[in-house]
Structure formats: structure tokens, C-alpha cells
Amino acid sequence: MYQPAQFVQPSLEAMHGLIRQQPLATLVTLANDGLNANHIPLHLSDAPLPFGTLRGHVARANPLWHDLDPEPEVLAIFHGPNTYISPSWYATKQETGKVVPTWNYTVVHAYGQLQVVDDASWLRSQLEALTNQHEAAFPEPWAVADAPHEFTEKLMEAIIGIELVITRLSGKWKVSQNQPPCNQASVAEGLSASGQLDAAGMAALIKAGVKNGG
């Protein structure tokens, strides 16, 4: 990933936060017929330090788990807020006219070797951890144990676990840090009024940068 210095995200806490908030990963692997990409929700565990472990599952019918070169690293990509930035939002547009459109985004790349886990106890624990994380905000959270045991056991026969111990993490926060504070503030205002998907989240990230000195 191309990483200009001003867009590098050095905070492990921020990268872990994005992974937990946006757990649907694009998992890129090397198969016998070339690169393959699957879209899989992954649950992050903090251990082992420093980067943690990603765990998930795929259908047994998915060739990912058996058509996999075990040697190369795999790449899990997690996308955070992303938005189009109109040049009309820049405060300096009226002064110089030297402005162009761009795209702001946040993203985390997680690397490691993918392991296949064919173990019913591990798989149930993974399903419970993933479900509990995403049900926690509901007033009456659903749990795996709420479904009949025989029913879930039968469904589990059709899936298999995957695990990636993260060996390196790369985060990129392109949130207008390359603009002067006046443009950062005006872009945040423009986003807030735009109604774009992710606009509120991106505006908050830009305002946080302004508050911290750009």
C-alpha cells in the first residue's frame, strides 16, 4: 500500500478499533489459479502481542480453505469511513482556485499466514465470540445457545474455521491532513451537510485532526 508519511496511522489502538468496528474483511489469498478474494467477517483477539489474531469461518464448499498455498502471507483488508471530497468545500477555492477533487478513506491491512482449523469446539467458540460482539448493542442480544443445539451442530458441519496470527499491520488514514486547517474545517462542514454515506464519520475524523493540530 502506498503510504505518504502524513497518512500513516501509527496507533495500534486505532487500527484495532477499525477492525472491530468494520469486521468484514476482504481476505486475499494465493490459490492454484492465482489471487483469490473472499469477504469474511473476522473476530479480533488481542493475543498474541503485539498485533493479535483474526478468527473466522467459511463454508466447506468454499475452495479457499483447501485450495491455499500455505507458504505466502495472506492479506486481510478492513475498510473504515470513505467519502468523496468536493473541491467546492475548500476554503481556499475562493482565494486561488487551485483545488481538485479527492477521496478520503481509512483502511487497515493485516498480514500473516492463514491456518485452517477443523475443530468443533474451536468453531463454536469462534461463533460465540463473533456473535456476542455484534449482538452486544441490542436490548435483547441473541446468543448461539438460543438456537436448538442439534440445529447449530448440524449447521456447523457445513463450515470450517480459519485463523490468522497477525505478523504486521499497516494503517492509512487519508483524512485531509495534507490540507491547511482552514480547508480541514471547511471540508468537515461540507461533509456534514452532504448526506453522503460515511460523511459523519469522516467529518469526525477530520475534526479530530484539526483539534490535534492537523
Results as ranks from 00 to 15, higher is better:
residue 139 P to N: 07
residue 116 V to W: 02
residue 124 R to G: 02
residue 114 L to H: 04
residue 119 D to C: 13
residue 124 R to Q: 12
residue 118 D to R: 00
residue 118 D to M: 02
residue 124 R to T: 07
residue 120 A to G: 03
residue 136 A to S: 14
residue 139 P to T: 07
residue 120 A to Q: 12
residue 112 G to F: 02
residue 126 Q to A: 14
residue 114 L to R: 06
residue 133 Q to E: 15
residue 129 A to W: 05
residue 124 R to Y: 01
residue 113 Q to P: 03
residue 123 L to Q: 07
residue 133 Q to K: 15
residue 131 T to Y: 00
residue 119 D to H: 09
residue 112 G to H: 04
residue 116 V to E: 00
residue 123 L to G: 07
residue 123 L to E: 01
residue 124 R to I: 02
residue 127 L to I: 10
residue 128 E to H: 01
residue 125 S to I: 01
residue 125 S to H: 10
residue 113 Q to K: 15
residue 136 A to K: 12
residue 118 D to C: 05
residue 131 T to G: 08
residue 112 G to K: 08
residue 120 A to S: 11
residue 133 Q to Y: 05
residue 122 W to N: 05
residue 135 E to S: 07
residue 139 P to F: 09
residue 110 A to P: 11
residue 128 E to V: 14
residue 125 S to V: 03
residue 133 Q to I: 00
residue 119 D to R: 12
residue 116 V to K: 00
residue 125 S to E: 14
residue 111 Y to K: 11
residue 122 W to T: 06
residue 117 V to S: 02
residue 118 D to Q: 06
residue 117 V to R: 07
residue 137 A to C: 10
residue 139 P to D: 15
residue 115 Q to S: 14
residue 124 R to C: 04
residue 126 Q to T: 12
residue 125 S to R: 14
residue 113 Q to V: 11
residue 120 A to M: 07
residue 133 Q to P: 04
residue 127 L to P: 05
residue 124 R to S: 08
residue 131 T to S: 15
residue 119 D to L: 08
residue 119 D to Y: 03
residue 126 Q to H: 09
residue 115 Q to M: 09
residue 116 V to L: 04
residue 125 S to A: 15
residue 133 Q to F: 00
residue 128 E to D: 13
residue 129 A to S: 14
residue 113 Q to L: 05
residue 123 L to V: 00
residue 112 G to S: 07
residue 116 V to T: 08
residue 134 H to Y: 12
residue 112 G to Y: 03
residue 124 R to W: 00
residue 113 Q to S: 13
residue 121 S to N: 11
residue 116 V to D: 07
residue 134 H to L: 10
residue 126 Q to W: 03
residue 134 H to F: 11
residue 136 A to H: 07
residue 137 A to H: 13
residue 125 S to C: 10
residue 114 L to V: 05
residue 129 A to F: 03
residue 138 F to E: 11
residue 137 A to T: 09
residue 112 G to D: 06
residue 129 A to D: 09
residue 135 E to R: 03
residue 138 F to H: 13
residue 137 A to I: 08
residue 126 Q to P: 02
residue 117 V to Y: 01
residue 127 L to R: 04
residue 127 L to S: 10
residue 127 L to C: 11
residue 130 L to T: 13
residue 131 T to P: 01
residue 116 V to A: 00
residue 133 Q to A: 14
residue 124 R to P: 04
residue 112 G to C: 06
residue 134 H to N: 13
residue 126 Q to F: 01
residue 112 G to I: 03
residue 117 V to L: 01
residue 137 A to R: 14
residue 132 N to S: 14
residue 127 L to A: 14
residue 116 V to N: 00
residue 132 N to W: 01
residue 112 G to N: 06
residue 129 A to L: 09
residue 130 L to M: 14
residue 124 R to D: 02
residue 117 V to H: 02
residue 118 D to L: 03
residue 110 A to R: 10
residue 115 Q to G: 05
residue 125 S to Q: 15
residue 132 N to L: 13
residue 111 Y to E: 07
residue 111 Y to C: 05
residue 136 A to I: 02
residue 138 F to K: 15
residue 137 A to L: 12
residue 125 S to K: 13
residue 131 T to E: 09
residue 130 L to I: 08
residue 138 F to L: 15
residue 119 D to G: 12
residue 126 Q to L: 04
residue 111 Y to I: 04
residue 139 P to Q: 08
residue 132 N to Q: 14
residue 135 E to A: 12
residue 126 Q to K: 05
residue 132 N to Y: 03
residue 129 A to K: 12
residue 132 N to A: 15
residue 126 Q to V: 11
residue 128 E to P: 04
